[in-house]
Structure formats: C-alpha cells, structure tokens
Design a binder for these strands. Structure first.
Lengths: 216, 216
DNA sequence: ACCTGAACACCGTTCAAGT
DNA sequence: ACCTGAACACCGTTCAAGT
C-alpha cells in the first residue's frame, strides 16, 4: 500500500531545490486560461498572460500545447467534460416522468451555459474542430450529446414520446433549442433578470416544443 | 437636370491628377473586409490587409472608423440590412397560409446564413454591441426581427396562430430555433450535403414546433 | 526533459508630417 | 480634409542555450 494522494500534490518527492518547473504545467495553464477568459473575455485572452500568471515564460507553454488553439481546445474540452457530467447526473437522478427529465436536462444545460458564459463561448466560438483536429474534444462533445439522446430514447421506450423522428433527432432538436436560447440571452436579445428567470422563461417559451415530444 | 449617375463613379468631376484618396473609402473598406472575412474567416481578418487590398495605408482606415471593432460592426450591420430586406420580401410576397409564410421566412433566414457563413459569424460573434455602442447596428437587427414579429402577428390576427404567448415571443421562439439550427449546421454537428437539404431537414425537424404555433 | 531569453514577423493604434 | 510613414506596445511562434 502506498500512502500517497492520487491527485498531484508535491507532498511526496519534493522538488530538488525549488525547481523552476511546475508540477503539472499543462493543467495549470488550462486553469489560468479559464480564469482569464472568464474575467476578461475570450477575445482578450492571451497565451503570454496565461503563462505569466502561473509564473512561467510564455515559450514554456509550447512544451505542452502545440499552439494557442490547442490550449483553447483544452479549455473547451474541460467545459464539455463538466457539462456531460452534470447532464449525466440529472438524467440518472431525476425521478418522475420523461417530460420532467427533459425539462431538468434543459435546465442543467442552461445553468451551465449561464454560469460560465465565457467558457461556453469558447466551446462554440472559434472553429477549433475544423479538419478533425482534437479528437478528444470531439469525444467530450459526443459524451454530452449522448446523455440527451439517452433521455429521449428512454422517453420513447416508455411510450411517452413520439417515435418519429428518432431519438437522435429529438435530441438535436432540444440541443438546437437550448443553444439558440443561450445565445439570445447572452447577447441580451432576450432580457432576463437572473438565471432562474432565464430557465423559467425558457420553459414557458418552449412549452409547445415540449408538447411536440408527446406521443400522438 | 444634371446627367450624372447617382452611384459614385468617377465619371463626373475627375480626380485632379489621379489623387491618392478613394471615392468612398469607408464603403470600400467594408467591401474589402467582407471579402477577406468570407475567404479567410473572421478571426484571420486584419485591418491592415483590408486597407492594403483597397490600395491605402492602414492608418487611413482610422479616418473613417474609430477602430477595428467599428469596421466589423459596419460589416455586421450590412448583413442585417440585407437580411431584413430579404425577410421583408418573403413576408410581403408569400401568398398562402400563415404557416407557409413562417416556413418561407425560416427558409430565407437559413439561406442567408448558409450563403454567408463567415459574415453570419461576425453578426453573432464578437460582442460588438456590448454597452450599446453602434445604435445603428442595433436598429438594423431590430428591423430584421420586426419582420418576424409582423408575420406572427398576422397569423394571430387571421386566427390561425395561438394568441398566447404574444407575437413577439413566438418570433423569439422562431429566431432561437433558426439560429440554433444554423450554428449546429455550421459546426457540422448536423451534417447536410447542401443548403437545400439543410432547409428541408430543418422543416421536418421542426414540424412539431410549427404545429405548436397552431391555435388550440 | 523542461524552461529561459532573445529574436522574428505581424498586429492594432497613434500621430506628426505631407498634399 | 484625407492620407502617409514611422513609431509604439503587444501578440503568437520559434529556437539555441541553459539546468
């Protein structure tokens, strides 16, 4: 048995003299990027500033990320990872009807997006995944999406939701809807006072769409 | 009667010696920006390159635009102007039911977005209108949106559409839906072979939503 | 193996100077 | 009034050199 923590603290093998290099510079850079992006906005984000904020020369970043885009991809991926986890939680833990589950899923999606608006913008903004770079980012997106598909499928299996179109397409419909709504709220085209109100308004606005899920 | 063309050709008062300055540098810069953005993408767009492509020093741009953001705002505004015109055309010229009119409106929106994907990204991308800069851009957006509201209102007046929620909210619902769909198509999360197919798929996907517009 | 430090090409912005 | 040309601060990226 090895009595050491799984997550990298410097408890065990301590740095030789207070060495210049980080425990996990890659992770530190992603964290710094996340913070800078959320405070200053994605377009003001700078590789150099991120490096400086973790106490390292900007050139050092290139030992861990191919370029600035790769670092942004990591930020995006981290976002989808958290999102997938939250959606998964809601999907498995929500008791009640499939309708309520879909509603809770949408609410969780909106919550995440409105809590981390700048990160959400990175997740959609620059065309990171053109030409299939970053397959792990692609996988993280898929994971999040699959949760939605699963909930739709369950609704169909229970005979509550219509079976045409397929679960995958119902999920796309919900995704389109939730994302579009987030964008309009973020750009203040839809004005709401709080996140709670944003979610409530979403539900009333899309009552007809939710009804459309019903079996005919 | 003055026999001169309204649009600025150099036919009339010719430049004194072949002067260095443009007829309408502001408009020329917007045109150049539009072309560069559509070919190289918005994030690769450069003020200096736009200036160079119209044969002018980059400093000259600042006589006509406060900064790069202002030029992008002009590009965005031009986009909303064209979009509003197209939507207005469809709204006034589409014979048939209100349902068909909404469908045609959505199709026109998708067509514009998919024809000019890079410009569309500028229209949504950088937070140009934070803090209420560019009121004329804001007005152009409103003009486009008002067309949609008008169509919804007409549907209500004819007794075809439900009267709750209000026309403005029905229009928001459609906007959310169309924009969300465009984003997923643009990011290849929804894969379609052509613009025509994209529009068709949209219609089948959102049949339930369109149904939701009906009077109960 | 990992980081530094200096260099390079490029960017947005400013401004005195030209016409 | 409108544009030039040079300067400034800053950026992403590269790379020989240090430890």
């Amino acid at each position: 048995m090895v009595p050491c923590s799984v997550v990298g603290t410097t408890k065990g093998r301590r740095p030789k003299k207070q060495s210049y290099h980080h425990g996990d510079l890659a992770r530190a850079l992603v964290g710094a990027a996340l913070e800078l992006i959320e405070t200053r906005g994605p377009e003001a984000f700078t590789l150099r500033e991120a490096a400086a904020s973790v106490g390292v020369t900007h050139g050092a970043a290139y030992r861990h990320f191919e370029d600035k885009t790769a670092l942004l991809a990591a930020v995006s991926q981290e976002g989808y990872r958290v999102l997938a986890a939250r959606l998964g939680d809601v999907a498995s833990k929500t008791k009640g009807s499939s309708h309520e589950r879909v509603r809770a899923l949408a609410a969780a999606y909106l919550d995440f997006a409105l809590e981390h608006p700048a990160q959400y913008r990175v997740m959609w903004g620059p065309r990171l995944n053109e030409d299939g770079r970053f397959p792990s980012l692609e996988a993280a997106i898929q994971d999040a999406f699959d949760v939605v598909v699963g909930v739709m499928k369950r609704g169909q299996d229970e005979g509550v939701f219509r079976k045409q179109p397929e679960a995958r397409e119902l999920a796309i419909g919900m995704w389109v809807t939730a994302h579009g709504y987030v964008e309009l709220v973020a750009r203040r085209r839809i004005k709401v006072k709080s996140r709670r109100v944003a979610v409530e308004y979403f539900e009333t606005l899309f009552e007809p769409f939710l009804d459309g899920l019903e079996r005919r």
